[in-house]
């Protein structure tokens, strides 16, 4: 089994998500987030990760699912091309190894926002694991940036 099939899993609004474990650097719990005015809606803000400034993506918002807002959020820090990016999630779960033949492409009836971000679904006993396309989730949603700017 290759390491590509290990997933770091977490919950968002009772949905169970997984991202490739090899991309995850660490998980931190509720640090102070500096909001960035005018930023795209999906950006939660900036955090200080031991002297490094890391952009945090509000994953529920990016996926178009509501915040439950109960549990204090955790941040999963993942490696992007040449920077670190934080993902705001609700609750971090275990690291799982998934057999390739248990997953299939996401069904077509997903909400628009999620459709391009959920790469596949793993059919595990009793529950479904949503596998995220990390690069798409981190990709800058330039349309939003521009509208957010409120061009004069």
């Amino acid at each position: 089994m290759s390491a590509d099939c290990r997933f770091c899993t977490f919950y968002l609004d009772r949905l169970w998500f997984g991202i490739a474990a090899e991309r995850v650097q660490e998980v931190i719990s509720s640090p102070a987030i500096t909001p960035v005015p005018l930023a795209p809606r999906a950006v939660a803000g900036l955090i200080n990760l031991r002297g490094q400034i890391v952009t945090v993506i509000d994953l529920p918002r990016r996926l178009g699912i509501g915040h439950r807002g109960r549990t204090p959020p955790a941040i999963v820090v993942v490696r992007s091309e040449n920077a670190l990016v934080g993902l705001l999630v609700e609750q971090v779960d275990e690291v799982l190894e998934v057999l390739e033949n248990t997953s299939e492409a996401a069904p077509n009836n997903l909400p628009v926002e999620s459709r391009e971000l959920v790469a596949a679904v793993c059919k595990l006993p009793r529950r479904l694991l949503h596998l995220l396309d990390l690069d798409k989730a981190l990709g800058d949603d330039s349309r939003e940036v521009r509208t957010g700017k409120g061009v004069k």
Binding site: L38, A42, I53, D140
Partner: peptide
């Protein structure tokens, strides 16, 4: 990269109290 398109910011910094 998610924030570079916003023209009002030149970057970010960490202050002495650790805040961004």
């Amino acid at each position: 990269q998610q924030l570079r398109a916003i023209s009002c910011y030149a970057g970010a910094a960490i202050l002495g109290d650790g805040q961004v």
